[in-house]
Computed example of a mutant assay.
Amino acid sequence: MAEPALRFTVTEADTALAVGSGSLPVLGTPRLLAWCEAATCAAVEASLGAGETSVGTRVELEHLAATAVGRTVEVTARQVYADGRLRRFAVAVREVGPEGRPGKLVGSGEVTRVVVDAERFLARLEG
Rank of each mutant, 00 (worst) to 15 (best):
C41K: 12
C41T: 15
C41I: 15
A42G: 06
V44K: 04
V44C: 11
E45G: 12
S47Q: 14
S47G: 14
S47E: 15
L48M: 12
L48G: 04
G49R: 09
G49K: 06
A50C: 12
A50V: 15
G51P: 10
G51A: 11
G51L: 10
E52P: 01
E52F: 03
T53G: 12
T53K: 11
S54D: 10
S54C: 10
S54R: 08
V55N: 06
G56I: 06
T57S: 14
R58P: 09
R58L: 13
V59D: 01
V59H: 03
V59E: 01
E60W: 07
E60K: 11
L61K: 01
L61T: 03
H63Y: 06
H63N: 06
A65F: 10
A65M: 09
A65V: 12
A66M: 11
A66K: 06
T67H: 02
T67G: 05
T67E: 07
T67D: 07
A68I: 11
V69C: 01
V69F: 03
G70W: 09
G70Y: 05
R71F: 11
T72R: 08
T72N: 10
V73G: 05
E74H: 05
E74L: 08
V75C: 04
T76C: 07
A77D: 02
A77Q: 03
A77Y: 01
Q79F: 01
Q79D: 12
V80Y: 00
V80T: 15
Y81W: 11
A82Q: 15
D83N: 13
D83A: 14
D83K: 11
G84R: 02
G84S: 05
G84Q: 06
R85D: 14
L86N: 11
L86Y: 04
R87L: 03
R87N: 12
R87G: 03
F89K: 00
F89S: 00
F89E: 01
V91C: 04
V91E: 00
V91S: 02
V91Y: 02
A92F: 01
V93H: 00
R94C: 09
E95I: 07
V96C: 03
V96M: 02
V96D: 05
G97Y: 01
P98M: 01
P98S: 11
E99V: 12
E99A: 15
G100T: 07
G100H: 02
R101L: 09
R101Q: 14
G103Y: 00
K104G: 09
L105Y: 06
V106K: 00
G107A: 09
G107T: 02
S108L: 07
E110K: 03
E110M: 10
